[in-house]
Design a protein around this nucleic acid. Sequence first.
DNA 1: AATGAATGAGATTTCATTCAT
DNA 2: GATGAATGAAATCTCATTCAT
Lengths: 205, 205, 205, 205
Amino acid sequence: MNSRSLGLLRDGGRGNDAAILQAALEAFGAKGFHGASMRDIARGAGTSLSNLYNYFPSKSDVLAELLRMANDELLARITEAVNAAGEEPPDRLSAAVRAHVAFVVDHQIASLVALTEVRYLAGVARTNVVAARDSTQSIYEKIVAAGAASGQFRTPYPDDAARNIVSMCSAISTWYRPGGRLSKRELGEQHARYALALLEAELPG
Amino acid sequence: MNSRSLGLLRDGGRGNDAAILQAALEAFGAKGFHGASMRDIARGAGTSLSNLYNYFPSKSDVLAELLRMANDELLARITEAVNAAGEEPPDRLSAAVRAHVAFVVDHQIASLVALTEVRYLAGVARTNVVAARDSTQSIYEKIVAAGAASGQFRTPYPDDAARNIVSMCSAISTWYRPGGRLSKRELGEQHARYALALLEAELPG
Amino acid sequence: MNSRSLGLLRDGGRGNDAAILQAALEAFGAKGFHGASMRDIARGAGTSLSNLYNYFPSKSDVLAELLRMANDELLARITEAVNAAGEEPPDRLSAAVRAHVAFVVDHQIASLVALTEVRYLAGVARTNVVAARDSTQSIYEKIVAAGAASGQFRTPYPDDAARNIVSMCSAISTWYRPGGRLSKRELGEQHARYALALLEAELPG
Amino acid sequence: MNSRSLGLLRDGGRGNDAAILQAALEAFGAKGFHGASMRDIARGAGTSLSNLYNYFPSKSDVLAELLRMANDELLARITEAVNAAGEEPPDRLSAAVRAHVAFVVDHQIASLVALTEVRYLAGVARTNVVAARDSTQSIYEKIVAAGAASGQFRTPYPDDAARNIVSMCSAISTWYRPGGRLSKRELGEQHARYALALLEAELPG
DNA sequence: AATGAATGAGATTTCATTCAT
DNA sequence: GATGAATGAAATCTCATTCAT
């Protein structure tokens, strides 16, 4: 078990699934969905290949469950942070970005997999995951729209700004390694400032 | 052949390679490196499976060649644009971003593949591609450093800003569809402004 | 439970076996012995996979029991009918065919499975089933021989006729659907006439 | 190669398919469609497992091709025999049965597989095979109808007689072994007589 | 009796690659 | 250059069966 993912899996795992999902996460993170085999996952989970199918009907379902959990948790964290942040759009935006960055740092592999492997989902699973992702982005969009309306965000391009902020936060999962130059908190502060600057908000200092 | 990719492939192809590379590009773009098969590529290129091996020694080499060409072209375009932009860091940065966005729009699939499939390269091929990518990012870093030194970019975090600007530009490849709301030029303007704002530069208007 | 099979299973089942055997019958009928899985049977019987093994030591044993029951019942019905039919070979033959047809109609799926899946039995189970089948055919053969000896059946090929009569009756299981053009009784009359005609017996009308 | 099947496969095989089809025929005949594995077929054909897929896209397609060939050949033989038999229904019926029996004897395994494994086909393949089978039966039905109309067949049940005649001929594949008591020709004569008797035709002798 | 978890063997199919022509 | 045939390895998934509870 990888401590960086523990919380995510404790939430969603209903017992033995956890080991499988954790192994799948690591396999998909290291080799991608198609590059990782069910054998890899079984090996990582310390069980037999065929036993995987007592828990998940297919490899795709494993990925789907993983992404569902990751997106749900991200959405929950951002929602909670924004709700606790008061009414001012800049405060709300900062809170969202800080929560977002913290999630990516806490669940780096899950974030990476969610970013890069959605495309291999099909059908309902894909629809659901995309919907959850859209919900997250829509939180940003509402904050940006409010700040644009109030004149606190002066960017001439408020409509597309949210997408770029999400991109910046998600991209952290592609390069972040624990023990880097900046702490989780510092990374959050930094990206909150980048986001506010991008929106052309009034900045301290 | 897809006109969006023509330039890229005409530059690098030594004749018949072009059809194979173009087919590989589409296959990797649609299904990912491991999801696309050599058979897919052969079918797309209108040739036989075994004939592919007269042009490329392995599937990995096809990907390597594709990424080499894409990164070289991107690097060339940005270098040229920056050199033509005069001495002022804000001008140079705008030029870089505009060229970058134009490249992503012109070669969307290649940009996407370059973004998402590098991880499946190994050995020298990977080293080379990563080096080219680093060269590109380093152009941004130098401009940012110059602007920070001159006081034109007032962000307290100049060291990590370049990476975020590159992320924003690259991310366009993940959602852009031709015929969207903004033209290629508008998209370039928009992202140039986002970049300058993020750097906390003086902005017009 | 399928009413067409109830009698068959009530006779042989020692309680809970019935549901399993009935489910197996339907599964084997629909997908064949190798095409149907123990999981299919468990699902159909409304029990767990592993519980099947409390009733039958193996999948083959399920089939063996099914065929044993079907052949025993057929043999019993024909024997009884023939015994009640008096001494005249034509009467005895008609009675056998009518009973045979009635059995096939009453237990269509069981008849079909008995016809097509015997080949997947091995060892004693196969031997027993084949013996029961031979007993049935031998009843026909004795009647035919008696009628040939008495001059009532004038076919020049009495020795192989019984097999063909059995074939005709068995084949009903491959096409019969309840609610067809002819009733069970009419089907029996029809086939009795076909059989007597084939034997070149004197026919009414 | 099994000489009993040579003709059938020489007709339809376009080169290397023949060995695969012959091996498949023997495997399906011995173990049934689901009981025989692609490995069995590869072994029988003296090639590798994966090479099978250069000839047939799936196991089902192998079966489909086999049944198509068998039914086409049977239909062709019966058609030809009937056409050569003149106008009299009894003559035409005898010719059909003799040709039918000869085919079953010549291609016993193919006949058996065609009889017992059609059910494992699906989609168009099944539709086509069933159509070919219906064509064959319809030849018998037309002859029977003509003979009934002319008064030469006096059975009160002409409508269902054809099916029973076909059943009798097909059933030969389930028990016939070369070198049996009766020669191919004798078996044909015998079954022609059975068929005419069943139809209550005027019989010699 | 009944169950859920587990497993080794094996199923079909696809893969990247090679080779003779 | 180009092809068709071939192959070993590996992919996903299913199977009948066992075992601890």
